[in-house]
Computed example of a mutant assay.
Amino acid sequence: MDVPAARRTGTLLLGLAAATAAAVLPWLPAAADVPHIDPAALPRGDSPAVVRLVRDTVRDGDLRVPATTRGDHDALWVVAGGYLLRDVNVGPRHLTRVVHVSRTGERRLVARSPGLLTVAVSGSGRRVAVQRPLGSSGLRSVITVSAARTGRVVGHRELRLANLVAVTDHRVLIGLRARWHHPATVWWNYERGTLHRVYHQAAVGADVRHDRVVFDRTPVGEFCNRVAPLSRPGRTLWHSCRVYPRQWSPDGRHALATHTYFDAAGTDRWWVIDGRTAVRQARITGRLDWHAVWEDDGHFLTLTQSDAGRAAVIRCDLTGTCERASRLWDVPVPEDPSVFYAAPPVVLASP
């Protein structure tokens, strides 16, 4: 689930009113109790089993594939025929690009924009959806769906106040008017060119495989969300104004969650929660990356940095016990406390 797909910066809201219905999540600890995990002090385990980008090289098992070098990489996906990379050139033009790289290194530009490019990949890896802003207002955008292997465009639609949430091999899930009046979630069948209304709240995240959708609850609070079965969107599994489920495990039994919004380049904690009830089962804390991925049903990977500036990929299990899964890099801790975290030169592939 890419909600959104890039590493994003936000503000931890203090004093939010707690949600009051069933399955409310009131268990956010105070910030003062955060022990920062130190990757240099962890035992060394196996290297990650997921595809990853290390500097400018994609590592896929024993395969090494040169990646793009014109910008800073912030996202990676495994797709049919190879890999999808998003990079950002922070120069005067500030261009964001999405590039397909084959397993033998051939490159094909998928999209380019001076604004944020939101990306979703179908579970099969066959379809890629990219949302590109139109104009400077940010109100209108266009979503293009293409075949990952060939680049052939199979769907194209311009929308207003839209949020690309997920794509399958036949449809795109879109949240409309998120954080505005008259929100809605729709399925866009790009093969038929039709829109089908799902629910009267705007989706901001989904795991289609596990029948989960995350809705924005703007009338309740500025960053409140509600989790429901995608097949029964009116049924609430849980809701929260403080934490957000970022990704469900491959078997759907657990999910990774972090703050809904946090004023830093990274986050200060990840929780393992029950995938159906959101009951908390484990927690890791420290200078952590916004991005974390499941390696298998019992382990997840993320990036972390110690207070001394030693950074690495770490692997943690369902109890919160962690080990180091990469070499160590010296990455200076940002002087600006609001930045909080600086990543090692690694990008883990998104599902």
Rank of each mutant, 00 (worst) to 15 (best):
V99I: 14
Q247N: 04
L164K: 00
R152Q: 08
R97A: 03
L318V: 11
R108W: 06
E158L: 02
V145N: 09
D289Q: 10
A282V: 06
G221A: 15
A17V: 08
P43V: 07
R126M: 11
S136K: 13
R280G: 00
V3P: 08
R108Y: 02
A265I: 05
S306T: 04
Q131R: 02
N225V: 15
P66R: 12
S240V: 10
A312K: 12
V145L: 08
G115E: 11
L318F: 08
P39W: 13
A312Y: 13
S146F: 13
L195I: 02
R149L: 01
F300E: 00
R44N: 03
A75K: 09
A184C: 06
H182R: 13
A343Y: 07
T150A: 10
V154R: 09
D62M: 04
T185G: 02
H36L: 10
A120Y: 01
Y83C: 12
G309V: 01
D307N: 07
V220R: 06
Y199N: 02
L176H: 14
R226A: 02
A18T: 05
R160K: 06
A40S: 14
W271S: 00
I143S: 03
T258N: 09
G175A: 13
P66F: 11
T96K: 05
L28P: 09
R324T: 05
A203I: 01
L288R: 02
W290H: 03
V50Q: 14
L328N: 06
G82N: 09
R44W: 07
H259Q: 09
L13M: 13
A349K: 11
T11R: 13
N225L: 14
D87V: 01
G135Q: 07
F215G: 12
S137K: 03
G286Q: 04
Y199K: 06
N163W: 12
D33A: 12
L25S: 02
L63C: 11
R171N: 04
A148S: 10
E106W: 01
G125R: 00
F223Y: 14
Y341L: 01
V279S: 15
G151S: 06
T218G: 11
R44G: 05
P29C: 09
Y190T: 10
F223A: 14
V333A: 07
V50D: 12
D296Y: 04
G45S: 04
R324E: 14
R55W: 12
G151E: 01
H94C: 08
Q281L: 15
I284T: 02
P66W: 13
S240M: 01
A21V: 06
S240C: 07
S124T: 14
P4A: 11
L85V: 14
C224I: 09
W77R: 09
R103N: 13
D297T: 08
S124E: 08
A31H: 12
D207H: 02
T96P: 03
A278F: 10
D296S: 12
R52F: 15
R55H: 12
V153G: 10
H94K: 14
R226M: 02
L328G: 03
G320I: 06
R103C: 05
L173N: 00
R149C: 04
F215R: 01
V101H: 08
P345E: 03
V279Y: 06
F262Y: 07
V24M: 05
N189H: 08
P43K: 08
H254F: 13
Q305I: 06
P351V: 03
R132C: 07
P66H: 04
A23G: 14
T104M: 13
D46R: 11
